[in-house]
Each structure stands twice: as structure tokens, then as C-alpha cells.
Design a protein around this nucleic acid. Structure first.
Lengths: 161, 161
DNA sequence: GGCCTTCTGATAATGAATTCCATTATCATC
DNA sequence: GATGATAATGGAATTCATTATCAGAAGGCC
């Protein structure tokens, strides 16, 4: 058990960092550290939007990192719950980091592709209630609302009249 | 304009049938009728679960229908809003008929793959409210809750102790 | 029936995701 | 610091779902 980065300051439980959680998973699974993986993770965290493997590969290719490794790293992060894969219907899987901030859901404009994030505790509470009614426990969820954003609605109105 | 199946009985607006809606779309788009397509649609409606192209093809192949046609037909139904594509994260797109009953969402067991449908008007109402706050209009949505079903929870408990 | 267009089935093509394999890097142990 | 076992890597090859192509069949109007 590595004792590194076990800082405990002030009141409340110690906040586990992204790196610490990843380390824990690596240890648990008998995996190793690697500089390449660190670079991919770093680039992943730096890209704050929902990033595809292709996009992320483009950002690390100049350092000689291949896309197979990017696939593997994102899958690794998904496995330990540090990244969430999302499919918005265009055939490519996008990933976003979790554990940095609260869970959120998405509004997707079917006209221009804009993605807006939101969170709503009341919806989350109702989800848990529904699951319990069916005997389920909830590990994760996806909520996506597809429609037209304000700008596209304005454009549509202007074009019509 | 084909006047077929325009039955109007009792009070309230006339309920457009699945076939009538499809006909309207075909006419609007300058497409034709075909016996093969009718067979695929029939098989699609007969399979009430969320069906993949592969599964649906298996059910119509003995009548000489190829999977390219199944893909095309399901895409056609999606285009006119009579089928809804769903991706549950296993890489295959599943379709389900709409316009037959109210919209519903899904509980997916991450252990055994069971899919349970539910609907919750309060969640739907909150979704509309959230969208309005962001200036969006909602055309459709997807809500999926991933977790463990009652049976798998029971098995897990038994295996543990 | 003739004509034009759409539809169909077989198959090739596409593209995202995974796997293979030879090489390299990591890390506990000496 | 050298060694050995094994995970990690990059590029190519492969898999698999989906889409495009094309020649021939079928729908629908005259």
C-alpha cells in the first residue's frame, strides 16, 4: 500500500485526488505506472469538453503516442470510474472526466450540435426512487435531452418569417 | 393523397395508426410501397422488446430478406419518427417502436443485461423545465439508469456471505 | 404491356474499436 | 546498478456494426 499523497487537512474526510484514485486502481489490479499513460491522462484532463479518442490522439501524437494507447488508457479510466463514456448518437464515443465535480447531464442541440451541461438534484432523486420501486440499485445514469438551442430557434424563426 | 384507413369513431381526434403514419411519410418523400418492407415492419412491431438489426434480420431471413434491407427499413422508420434507436453501450443499436404507447425510459442491469422500462411524468416535467431554463426546446430525450437488478443483488449477497 | 424510378440482396467499403506482436519500460529483487 | 518477469507501447492487422455500391427485380403510372 503506497502512502503517497494522503494529505489530510482541516475538517471533513480527505478528498481523494484523481491521481490518487488512479493509483489505487492500478495497485488493486497489479498494473504499473508509465510516463506515456500519465501524458494521456494529463491531456485528457486538460481537454475539458467531451473528447473523442481521435481528438485526444491528435493532441498527443506529436509525442509519439499511438491511438491504441489512447483507447487503452480511456478504457482504463472508464473501468475505474474516472472517465465516463458518452454516446451522443453520431457513432463516436466521447469521454469526460468524473470525480472532479458533480455528476451532470446534457442538453444537445440537434441543429448545431452544441452541448450544454446541467445538473438537477430533483431529477436525480426521482431516478433513485424509480429504481428502488423496481428493485434496482443505481450505479450510474445517462440523461440526454435533444432539441433546439436558443440560437437555432431564433435562426429558424427568422428564416421562416 | 390516399384516403385509406381514415376511420373516425366516437369522440376525440382520429388516432393515426402506425401504418397510416408510415404511408404519409412515404408519400411525402416520394417513396413506394413494397411487400418486403411491410414484412420487415410487421416483424419489427411483433418483436416488442428492443430489437437489434441482427435479431430482426434473423427473424425475416427465411423469407429471403437481407440485412441491408432491415437496416434501411429501420432507418426509414427512425426518419419518420416511428422507431427510436437506442444505444445501451454494448456497441449495437437497438430499435423500439414509438407512437404505440407513451414514451418510456430504461433501467439496465449491468450484471445480467436485463432491461426494464419505466415512465415517470414528474421526471419528464422537470426535464422540460430544465431545458426551458437553458433556452432549449426538447424534441426527444434518453434516460438510462444503470445498476443491479433485484435478482443479481440477491445472487451477489448470497455469494458474499 | 412499356417505361421510369424505387427497392432489394449480395457484397464491397467504411470507420470505430480491439487485438496481435515485437519491442520497450517498469519495478521488485538481488 | 544489474536482472528477470511482466505490463505497456506503437503500428499493423483484425473485428464488427453500419453504409454505399450495383445489377437486377418490382412498384406504379401511362
Amino acid at each position: 500500500m503506497t502512502p503517497r499523497s494522503r494529505k489530510q487537512r482541516g475538517a471533513g474526510p480527505p478528498p481523494p485526488t484523481f491521481g490518487a484514485l488512479l493509483d489505487a486502481h492500478l495497485e488493486r489490479s497489479g498494473l504499473r505506472h508509465s510516463g506515456v499513460r500519465d501524458l494521456v491522462v494529463e491531456a485528457f484532463l486538460a481537454a475539458r469538453e467531451h473528447v473523442s479518442v481521435e481528438e485526444l490522439t491528435r493532441r498527443v501524437r506529436r509525442r509519439g503516442i499511438g491511438q491504441a494507447t489512447v483507447y487503452r488508457t480511456l478504457k482504463l479510466l472508464s473501468d475505474c470510474g474516472l472517465a465516463a463514456p458518452r454516446q451522443f448518437g453520431d457513432g463516436v464515443t466521447r469521454y469526460e472526466p468524473v470525480a472532479e465535480r458533480a455528476h451532470h447531464d446534457h442538453l444537445i442541440c440537434t441543429s448545431c450540435g452544441t452541448i450544454v451541461e446541467f445538473e438537477n438534484p430533483r431529477i436525480e432523486a426521482l431516478q433513485l426512487a424509480v429504481a428502488r420501486e423496481h428493485g434496482f440499485t443505481v450505479e450510474s445514469h445517462k440523461l440526454e435531452l435533444y432539441g433546439r438551442c436558443a440560437a437555432c430557434l431564433r435562426d429558424a424563426r427568422r428564416a421562416r418569417g
